[in-house]
Design a protein around this nucleic acid. Structure first.
Lengths: 159, 159
DNA sequence: CCTAAGTCCTTGTCCCGACAACCATTCTGC
DNA sequence: GCAGAATGGTTGTCGGGACAAGGACTTAGG
């Protein structure tokens, strides 16, 4: 292994803090949703993305992309959501390999019901703690990191 | 559920990007460590914290705190690391309820061997992508979030 | 003291995510 | 057209993390 330059104290401190947030934040989001809506954060995300899409339908591949997920993972989650009546699978007419995931009425209602609580959590733990300027800085920084993490920009729908 | 103000476009975009990074970054760190050192990110973190500590020893409770973890989780991981010879459990002489986790020679060697690769990954995916100014902004922002996520740095979820 | 409550840690069980193997359909080159 | 590659999804298995319960020890109160 080649030599790597060590971090400066400022860089190290920033990294340790960032690392901690990355570790702790998902647990907060997960637990709020699980407590208030019996949903995983990822389950919520899947339904939320469906709800933003025309006709509440997305192909599995597209849905996997927007949720930063893999197909196997998504498939399992959709099966769970299907069992609870929130989502249904519909064969894609134009490509018979493909499957469309469709948010049911019940699923839509679930999203509408649980969105405010989730939003509140996001506000309480992130957005409302920062100044507008900091939100802008966060946006810029995360844009740079995403570019590296997800070079192909498979995440569409960035407003 | 009370009404919650929706996010502005700027806030929403920042949040979606941040959310994506929080989702994707751990996978990158995990996979590098697993590939190059057969270690979980959390396993590495545990050994790293031990290696920074005097005599390479920490009480389980303290170790759980510095790694943002719970005691059950830590206990399982230490068991695994013990089975691989990287860590050993030593009863604490002053408090017989307590257990000290001690990094073995082999564990120390493992940390020394795998640290550069991990550091390189952190540099490649975060630090080296940002200006010094941005690193400072990231530090400030994460400090604010940490304050909310872990108010007294003495976390541990209570039921 | 001695009992009750609190602290420190371990263990068992369940569920979710990663990974690999697999099947079905569509595309490509010749 | 047709063989082989590529694409789109599903399923099975395995390992790690959350949570609940329990065991061992210590401290506090009368």
């Amino acid at each position: 292994m080649d030599r790597v330059e060590w971090l400066t104290p400022e860089q190290l401190r920033a990294w340790i803090r960032f690392e901690s947030v990355v570790e702790l934040l998902p647990a907060v989001l997960d637990s709020q949703l699980h407590r208030d809506a019996q949903l995983t954060h990822f389950e919520y995300l899947v339904m939320a993305k469906l709800s933003e899409s025309p006709d509440h339908v997305l192909r599995m591949t597209a849905l996997a992309a927007t949720t930063n997920s893999t197909l196997p993972r998504l498939s399992h989650v959709v099966s769970r959501l299907e069992a609870r009546g929130y989502v249904e699978r519909v064969p894609c007419p134009s490509d018979r390999r493909a499957t469309n995931a469709h948010l049911t009425e019940s699923g839509w209602a679930k999203v509408v019901e649980s969105a405010p609580g989730h939003l509140r959590t996001v506000r309480e733990h992130v957005i409302d703690l920062l100044t507008d300027e900091q939100v802008g800085q966060l946006d810029d920084i995360m844009a740079v990191l995403i570019q590296k993490l997800d070079p192909e920009n498979s995440l569409r729908r960035l407003p």
